[in-house]
Design a protein around this nucleic acid. Structure first.
Lengths: 95, 95
DNA sequence: TGAATATATGATTATATGTTCATATATTCA
DNA sequence: TGAATATATGAACATATAATCATATATTCA
């Protein structure tokens, strides 16, 4: 059994995947880098909701971003993300 | 972008990993099959709390169980679970 | 059968979480 | 500079969730 801190961090990490809005954001970013308003458009919700969720995704290092003029472009931060989502999908599709 | 139903199911699936009590249960079961009271002992919480959480783990097909007399033995249901936890841990330990 | 033990479950409560709304903070460009 | 656009953020509210407590449901065994 890992130390409590590891357990806690892991649970926090998986929390990020545990919401349908964030899952949609992740899928959108699997395609390509996107700005906030494009993500909002694709996900089908408000800019504000997306911005709040992107903050969580940033905090957990799931996404990185770069600014370009008025826009901020987000992209997935590493390959674990896609692999984890893929494994999750394998699980649910086996049922 | 997958269908909403897939997105929703995925988020539900990852919710199971998004709690420290459940994460401890998962780690305990990685070692070996255990009965409820042993899990409670290892995790360090009440039988009731464990039983409630095991119900969620059952619903999401993360654990299976067999009855033996008064006891119910739980074990992890498939290999995705360990792989997903391992990937999560790689992510948080890279930070 | 009745006591003891293991587990499950329902209700309650406290906390966490996601969205919304209003607004603040850049940045561009006329 | 001022209007327009893109993004971020804080407060408030509604909902979801986890733990606790009490109790129900097996199961064993004397």
């Amino acid at each position: 059994m890992p130390k409590d801190e590891i357990i806690y961090d892991l649970a926090e990490f998986f929390k990020v995947f545990a919401d349908s809005t964030r899952m949609k954001i992740i899928y959108a970013l699997m395609e390509k880098e996107l700005c906030v308003c494009d993500i909002a458009e694709i996900v089908g919700t408000t800019q504000s909701a997306i911005s709040h969720q992107l903050r969580l995704l940033k905090q957990s290092k799931l996404v990185k971003f770069r600014k370009e003029g008025k826009e901020v472009f987000y992209s997935l931060d590493d390959d674990h993300i896609e692999e984890i989502v893929k494994k999750g999908r394998e699980h649910i599709e086996e049922l």
